[in-house]
Computed example of a mutant assay.
Amino acid sequence: MNRRRRIYEGKAKILYEGPEPGTLIQHFKDDATAFNNEKHEVVDGKGVLNNRISEYIFNNLNNMGIPTHFIRRLNMREQLIRQVEIIPIEVVVRNVAAGSLCKRLGLEEGTQLPRSIIEFYYKNDELGDPLVSEEHITAFGWAAPPELDDIMALAIRINDFLSGLFMSVGIRLVDFKIELGRQIEGDMMRIVLADEISPDSCRLWDTTTNDKMDKDRFRQNMGGMVEAYQEVARRLGILIDNDRPGQSGPVLVK
């Protein structure tokens, strides 16, 4: 078996050289991290769940005409993706007050925001991914003004889709983080959604109980992280209960 060339390794994923030019293989690890990697554990099964949930969401976004880097799932932990030039900005869309927004503005967690808010963070672990403005982004050349317009339009469309998707299965989309990149085809360049969308990158609360179904269970030492991710997958129809004799527990739908 030929050794694959590793292109990049992050906190939760590894990127390998793909089988064709312009492609990469995205591998989902079981690592769970928080607070810029100050807290780190290996959580068995997390990578498999994130791979399947992100595949489901990206397929739906592709079908809606929202451009993404996703091509197809290869196996339980890996996806084939298009290689893109990542824009060094994390885009966070907030619908409900939680996390750092509460700390910065003194809001009570769970407060419904008057409208969805888009925030930008500069991707730099050494600096702690600081909050930045549109002026910073354009002044430092991280993205041009027309690109920023495209980014915000995509973020709004993705938020509309995700809010409806999760609400339909009894989950409240509190906020989520996305990353975007530039995909060049000939003389054309477009902004596409990259990275992943999973309970690692979203805050998801049960609409009835407000139970947290995302990485906050790890951040806040609540326990039950994998079980919460499994419940998200189950509600989305990705995970089914296996009732065959001699087996127990949930099974991922192929």
Rank of each mutant, 00 (worst) to 15 (best):
I197S: 02
F70K: 03
T68L: 10
L180S: 04
F70E: 03
D214F: 01
I184G: 10
K29Y: 01
N221Q: 04
N62R: 03
Y122R: 12
E109H: 08
A228H: 04
D44P: 03
E196K: 02
D241Y: 14
L80T: 05
V169H: 13
E185S: 12
E41P: 00
D129R: 11
G141T: 08
M167T: 13
T111D: 02
N62Y: 03
E20F: 09
D150Y: 09
T68R: 05
R219K: 07
Y122W: 15
V232Q: 07
G22E: 12
Y122I: 14
G181R: 12
E108P: 01
Y16R: 02
G170S: 12
G141P: 05
R182K: 13
Q79C: 11
E17F: 13
I57M: 01
A139C: 12
M64C: 14
S100H: 14
P21Y: 14
E17R: 14
E38G: 00
I57G: 04
I25D: 01
E134W: 07
R235G: 15
M152A: 08
G170M: 08
K46Q: 02
P146R: 04
Q112E: 15
P199G: 09
G10P: 00
I158W: 06
G223R: 03
Y229Q: 02
P146T: 06
R115W: 10
W205P: 08
F218S: 01
D187L: 13
M213V: 09
R6E: 12
S163E: 12
M225S: 03
L49E: 01
M64W: 10
R115P: 06
G237L: 05
R77Q: 01
T111A: 00
N60D: 15
A32F: 00
L165H: 13
W142A: 14
M188Y: 13
I197D: 00
S116R: 13
W205E: 14
K103D: 12
L239Y: 03
I81M: 07
M64R: 15
V232R: 04
A155I: 02
V169P: 11
G186E: 12
Q247F: 09
T138L: 15
D149L: 09
V43S: 01
G164N: 14
E135P: 05
C202Q: 10
N50C: 03
D150V: 15
K177T: 00
I184F: 06
N59F: 08
G164P: 10
R157Y: 07
V91D: 05
Y229V: 01
R217V: 00
K46P: 01
E196D: 02
Q26D: 05
I89F: 06
G99Q: 10
L105P: 04
V96Y: 07
P21L: 09
E147G: 06
H69G: 03
Q26T: 04
E20S: 11
Q183F: 10
R72L: 02
R217P: 02
I184D: 09
E126H: 07
E41R: 03
